[in-house]
Design a protein around this nucleic acid. Structure first.
Length: 486
RNA sequence: GGCGCGUUCGUCUAGUGGCUUAGGACACCGCCCUCUCAAGGCGGGGAUCACGGGUUCGAAUCCCGUACGCGCUACCA
């Protein structure tokens, strides 16, 4: 087994969206597989019919693909170990459950929910250390079982956990873990609706699908002894386990909807780049041992090891995600950003306007260092897309002096003389005016910026003038002089 | 309650017995650059390494205990 190429799986239940914690789990599986020339399998754990969500599998796959986590085998894609939807494997689970029953490792249980409930209440009343099933049905005679079966009495199949031994297993992240079998309940394996529980299904599937490494969230650590017992009962080799630390809310509870967005779709829709989200989530619980924090997927693949996964949970820190998003954005080429910006414009109020690629590229170059999100190429500088309708009040108060209209008029006249001006031409023109009227450049630039953009912040003045172009600049100066009064 | 796992700046983390007066990053503050805002550069505050005992010449690093947090405790995954 050790020398085989690894096969790993991401096995989410289809809840309707991909949780960022799920994304992290999927990512680590993916990185591990790619790093080791292994296979990444997607398996859908849809054995709870009460939780069925329309379109959930499609959404899940879409989100995974968006993040760049392509799986080698899975629903729709197919593979040699399908089907990859557990709801389509019911006969398989039945067969293996029967095998367990035959071996005495599992047994039918006909107890009603009511009996189970009173049993639990009684155990609680007695302050028993742990509430467990009392193995009542284990002691049914062959005859009784047959009668019950024939009578069609609702039944489940339970794991027969033998007491008084220590269940030990190794975990790449946790190292060595032990549980007392006395603390392990006779878990239901097959529910009364004939669907398996997670515990049976994941063990059977992982074995049949030849999964070598089970990489999953820490919430599964406590049920791993049950899984180990199952592998042993079947006489199967156990996979290597790696239980990942949880992603947490700012208050350190398990990352949840109530305290912010948890769906990767939410982050995508907010404008986070997939590179940034993947980079960020990779660093939540793993690092290469050095100070590097900016990664692309291929670098993550080459550097990832399970041995360097942390044990403690990690708070999902939005501020750092924002920063990484800006970092990734700045590293993108103008062409890439252009395409992203065009998509964004289609979603904006300017979708019916026509801007040339060239014009948009100038905006991108001017604003690249000043934005963290693609949409900010629009909403932090709408003056590139439309003549300002309003002027920032604070800047008016600060920069609009009684003599300002006169100064701007001078500038306007000077600009108007220019022929197809470059950035430098604008600069020279302003310098000339500054000298002529003996007014510092700064005293001209601030009101000019206000007149032309309506704002007090933005790219370099002359970049701004150049991008807007002479005619537009002249027009805007005229408009501003008319519209701004102190 | 029981069982399990965890605990280094606010957050993500480096650190695997001496190189550590605990390093980096985000965030915050200041300075520089400068036509503004950013970006960038430099600097600052911020962690008695949860606490208490050991082991050792020496411990954030090894051991034990305690506290706290989290997870599991379903015919959910």
């Amino acid at each position: 087994m050790i020398n085989e190429t690894p096969r790993v799986r991401f096995a989410p239940s289809p809840t309707g969206y991909l949780h960022v914690g799920g994304l992290r789990t999927a990512l680590y599986n993916y990185l591990f597989a790619k790093k080791n020339n292994g296979t990444f399998v997607l398996r859908i754990e849809d054995t709870d019919r009460n939780r069925y969500v329309e379109g959930a599998v499609e959404n899940l796959i879409k989100a995974l693909m968006w993040a760049g986590l392509n799986f080698d085998e899975g629903p729709e894609t197919g593979g040699n170990y399908g089907p990859y939807m557990q709801s389509q494997r019911l006969d398989i689970y039945k067969k293996y459950a029967d095998e367990l029953i035959e071996k005495g490792k599992a047994y039918y249980c006909f107890c009603t929910p009511e009996r189970l409930k009173t049993l639990k209440e009684e155990q609680e009343k007695q302050k028993l250390p742990q509430a467990k099933y009392d193995k009542h049905c284990l002691h049914l005679s062959k005859k009784e079982i047959e009668n019950n079966l024939n009578a069609g009495i609702p039944k489940v199949v339970r794991l027969n956990v033998e007491g008084n031994n220590t269940i030990k297993f190794d975990d790449i992240v946790r190292e060595h873990v032990e549980f007392e079998s006395n603390n392990v309940d006779d878990q239901v394996l097959i529910k009364s609706d004939n669907y398996p529980t997670y515990h049976l299904a994941n063990v059977v599937d992982d074995h049949l699908m030849k999964i070598t490494h089970v990489i999953r969230g820490e919430e599964w650590l406590s049920s791993t002894p049950k899984h180990v017992l199952l592998y042993d009962a079947f006489g199967w080799e156990r996979p290597i386990f790696a239980h990942l630390p949880l992603l947490l809310n700012p208050d350190r509870s398990k990352l949840s909807k109530r305290q912010g967005d948890v769906a990767v779709e939410d982050y995508r829709d907010k404008g986070f780049l997939k590179d940034a989200l993947v980079n960020f989530v990779a660093l939540l619980g793993w690092n290469a041992g050095d100070d590097k924090e900016f990664y692309y997927m291929d670098e993550l693949i080459s550097r990832f090891t399970l041995e360097r996964v942390n044990k403690a949970g990690a708070v999902f820190d939005l501020q750092k995600l924002n920063w990484l998003n800006a970092e990734h954005l700045r590293k993108k080429s103008i062409e890439e950003l252009l395409n992203l910006l065009k998509d964004e414009i289609q979603k904006s109020e300017f979708k019916n306007q026509n801007y040339s690629d060239n014009y948009l590229k100038l905006i991108i170059e001017a604003m690249k260092e000043r934005v963290s999100f693609i949409k900010e190429f629009i909403d932090t500088c709408t003056y590139f897309y439309v003549t300002p309708a309003e002027y920032e009040q604070k800047s008016i108060e600060k920069n609009w002096k009684p003599e300002t209209p006169e100064h701007l008029n001078k500038l306007k006249q000077e600009f108007a003389l220019l022929n197809n001006p470059t950035k430098e031409d604008f600069e020279h023109a302003l310098a000339k005016v500054s000298e002529e009227i003996n007014v510092g450049k700064g005293k001209l630039i601030h009101p000019l910026r206000l007149a032309v953009s309506g704002q007090s912040t933005g790219p370099g003045m002359f970049d701004l003038l150049f991008i807007l172009g002479k005619d537009e600049v002249v027009k805007r100066i005229e408009t501003a002089i008319k519209n701004i009064s102190v």
